[in-house]
Design a protein around this nucleic acid. Sequence first.
RNA 1: GCGUUCAUUGUGUAGAGGUUAGCAUCUCGGGUUUCCAACCCGGGGACCCGGGUUCAAUUCCCGGUGAACGCACCA
Length: 512
Amino acid sequence: MLICMTNDDESSKILMLMSHRGFIWGPSPEIYNPVKGSYEFGPLGKLMKNNLENYIRKLFRKHNFWEVQCPLISPEIVWKASGHVERFFDYIIQCENKDCNNLFRVDTMLEQMGYDLTEINFNELQEFIEKEKIKCPDCDASLGKVAKQNLMVTSQLGFPSSEFILRPETATTTYLTFPRLYNFYRTNLPIFVFQMGYAFRNEISPRKMLLRTREFEQCEGQIIIRPDQELDFEPYEEKKNYKIKMWSAKAQEQNDKKSVKISLKKAIEQKIIQKPAYAWLLYLAYDLVKGLNIPEKNIRLRQHKNDEKAHYAHDAWDLEIKSKIYGWTEVCGIHDRGNYDLTRHQEYSKKKQLFVPGLKKGEKIIPHVLEIAFGVGRLFFFALEQAFKFEKERNLLDLHIQITPVPFAVFPLMKKPIELQSIGRKIYEDLIENDISAIYDSAGSIGKRYRRTEEIGVRYAFTIDHQSMEDNTVTIRNIEDMSQKRVKIDELIQLATNLLHNKTTFEDIPEI
RNA sequence: GCGUUCAUUGUGUAGAGGUUAGCAUCUCGGGUUUCCAACCCGGGGACCCGGGUUCAAUUCCCGGUGAACGCACCA
């Protein structure tokens, strides 16, 4: 069975169409027993993901980030240094009663029983449980042995083989290039760098389609920066009046249910955030998501409370999107990692190349890192999900033109006369020649073809009719309101290019 | 991992211990059609896997696998 039903009608319709129209398939491989939480991007999904990635790339490049690509596999020491080996596993324990058989995370179980975790030595958990005679919280039977659940994926390499780790995040692999980047940047900080690629996590229970998978693509931008620069950050000055919706840790603790929309400047004045450079990253995340036509009411930035921060984070905010299907979900984490990473890599590698000159003469410091980390799959899922609009007559996929898989369609009004088709083919080929994604379709009635393409996010359709044969014009139809104008075939490529790059709008097209 | 529910063409479903496994949608070919899922003709496509009961199982039973949801988990 494919991605299946929820009770909600709209949700199941969205999930059905995602699969039916070739965006997302899975769990994969469907013809064998699928692997939990593994999905395929179908033809339209792959095109859309490419576009989404390029949209992100373009935005990062606009802000002077450079892209790098690092290996997926790295020796264990890298992840020891990063802190992942130490923290990226759970201690689990299972009830021995076969009827219960429940599995618990030891730390949360003990916490719920009222133990103070700070007083427990985790190397002696087993002894602790035996000493305290701890029983299953659900059925009071005795518990089995404490086991480690590793959340990282490992693999074997070499002859004889030794164990390597598949990266659980891209960020760390980016930091490893710091000495090289520092030279590339001619020893100027801050360094702006990003990486897009796969990461792997042995998630206990993958759920909710692309929202929780074991292999997933990340796009993580890093600003490697001196502490003084974090407070005096030029890009921030340009954007300090930009307003974002923030839900601070304090507000959450005071049970304020709603985020407030305030400017970056105000957020700093009110000490909701501390550093201008960090504030600017919140802007970047917000702006990127808003640019995908995701309604602002469905976007917010939520600060991590102290107990949910990752081991490396000084401050952490999540950009969350309110999914039509799954509710508020994180798509982007913005982390103030301080100098945690580079300090650790300095210690573990014993190389002294990670120091840079500080402000005072002779001072050597380890630079700080500000990180913005997107889950590409999640962003993809939300951009797609939010775009579905079910109208009376039609299903509309209202995707941003820059990420929609196929922005243009070419239709001969009818199959006959054949000349309609030859004009259409020519236009189609011209579009493709000019790197403009399009489809050509002559099957069925024109109305049917409009309906079909509306459902996959086509923005504009060019239709060749009998008048086309006389005066070299075609109609262009706007998906949004189904309105049409006539345009000259000669000017069509230029027009499509301009529409694609938001250099013109449908309204701007002159009537002829 | 636990629990609940479920498993029939691509999708949504009907169905009975013995059926050419039905319907809608989809899809393909042809006809028709001068702009919004029209119509006509013709074609295509399914009983999750293994075992048991039975003369006979897609249907009943057991097991497996998978899915949705809930619990737990989510660096």
